[in-house]
Design a protein around this nucleic acid. Structure first.
Lengths: 294, 294
DNA sequence: TTGTATGCGTTATCAT
DNA sequence: ATGATAACGCATACAA
């Protein structure tokens, strides 16, 4: 060992991977890396992967469409032991290709039904239902849902869950969708919804980023007081949600648990891996000041 | 090609790397990945690396100290073509080891003086000087600098540059350092500085995150109006700086240029690489509403 | 143009 | 216990 150190020798993981047929590389396929929720999940995943001796290869799929498939090809070329997909959805054929190459697949918040990959999702629908209860308890009568046009499964599950729970109580809700799931879209959504004459007094935003934009527009452009005139709930519990300018009541993404489940699954052997292929994690509502009577 | 596709064949980059002695892997060594500025830089780097056919290996150094060195060992084991260091500073011996193994090194905002690696820095000192001018033009008389205890070169350069420029004009400034460079530290710094009787009327925060915390405390705990009673300038131009709750005047980190220079340098041949080993990029002040009379 | 041999750095296996 | 050898998949150099 001393001699090896002296000579500056380091094992060659490329050669070792070639030999063992196991590279130690896990590919993280992500878009919108710079988004608060995504980067938090990324931090957690890299951290936990490293702690079990794996290394993360980061593939950014911000550019064109179909780039998830290209990202997976890249993962195959490097003989990654697994790929974890945080955004987009691979073509079924690519999924099959991965599995044939012995590459494990984890889909986070993708709610797909193909067998093979591990699917980790939240109880979005049920969570959305709890928002209706909270709004009613706060004395709100005109409920609204603010969504982006992204249309990803988790976003839509929140919308449908919210609408369904309201309908079950005989309430009609206002729904608006606009743009990309970010702060600016939240502002636009507020402009659209708050200029109506049947302006809502409670809004559930599909995402914290949307909620921040919505709150800022409501306050600064419409001079509305939160939570007095408008109650707001978000989703993700990003850092900014706890900032005193927002004090946003929101659902916490269990990022540690998500990452933990993913890497634990990768460490399992084939039989026990097959047992648990679909996980549903719980999103806990964290109460702050944006809803009356927490 | 058709046949290859039919058979599900994919080149093995491990084997190719072994042969060519060039893996195509670039190692990104980062701490605090989930921070807005860091994740933005990360997005840019992965994007641009991919566009030149490289792939990013992400190593998270949040845990213990000396982990930068361990990260670099990891990079060597995978025979990364280069390592880009966004945080921490490697030991000189490790630096030498990397260079001996033909591994390129890029240090971003690390302001080190060892020869070999490419060093990319901003004109922090000069930028800080311009803040003094802006504050004076706004009619402020009691200047302060809010810093964290991290003590990284770029943070200290901003502090010294600010202090020096003020001193050159015969002004004494108040300096306070606390904790880690984040939102919470900004709040604490505000509590410390704004309870003094010679309370500042202008504060330059080493970081936007600090500035957001400072502004929130100033407004919500001290009921101060910004920019009327207090002018604030930050650094980084994170997304949140442009949010209407902050409208923070700040310096933009030229993340695209930083990433661009880094990957361009990696693409150069040895001679032209040696020519430019230290780059100083310009941080442009973007005026928003947190300073009077922009 | 097509084919064949060799080496890259490991590790597993088999022989000593 | 120690040593020699083959094989992983690719690229290259040389031969046919």
């Amino acid at each position: 060992m001393e001699a090896a150190d002296e000579l500056g020798y380091h094992v060659n993981h490329l050669a070792r991977g070639l030999m063992r047929n196991e590279s130690g590389i896990v590919c993280l396929i992500v878009s919108e890396v710079a988004t608060p929720y995504r980067s938090a999940l990324l931090r957690e995943l890299t951290q936990q992967l490293q702690s079990v001796g794996k290394v993360a290869m980061l593939v950014n799929t911000d550019r064109s469409d179909g780039s998830v498939d290209r990202a997976l090809s890249q993962a195959i070329r490097y003989r990654a032991d697994a790929s974890i997909i945080l955004s987009g959805l691979p073509d079924k054929s690519i999924t099959q290709l991965c599995l044939r190459n012995g590459q494990r697949l984890v889909l986070i918040n993708r709610d797909d039904d193909q067998p093979g990959p591990l699917r980790i999702n939240l109880d979005d629908r049920e969570a959305a239902g709890r928002v209706v209860t909270a709004f009613l308890r706060a004395g709100c009568r005109k409920l609204a849902f603010a969504n982006s046009e992204a249309g990803t499964p988790s976003l839509m599950a929140r919308e449908y869950g919210f609408a369904a729970a309201a309908k079950a109580l005989g309430l009609d809700i206002m729904v608006e969708r606009y743009g990309w799931t970010g702060y600016e879209a939240g502002k636009v959504l507020a402009q659209r919804m708050l200029t109506r004459k049947d302006r809502p007094d409670a809004v559930f935003c599909a995402t914290d980023l949307l909620a921040c934009g919505f709150m800022d527009a409501a306050r600064h452009q419409f001079s509305m007081a939160i939570p007095d005139q408008l109650c707001v709930v978000g989703f993700d519990d990003i850092d900014q949600a706890s900032w005193s300018s927002y004090q946003l009541t929101t659902f916490a993404q269990p990022v540690q648990a998500i990452a933990g489940q993913a890497v634990a699954w990768l460490g399992k052997n084939d039989e026990s891996r097959a047992e648990s292929q679909s996980l549903m994690l719980h999103a806990e509502l964290v109460w702050r000041g944006s809803v009356r009577g927490g």
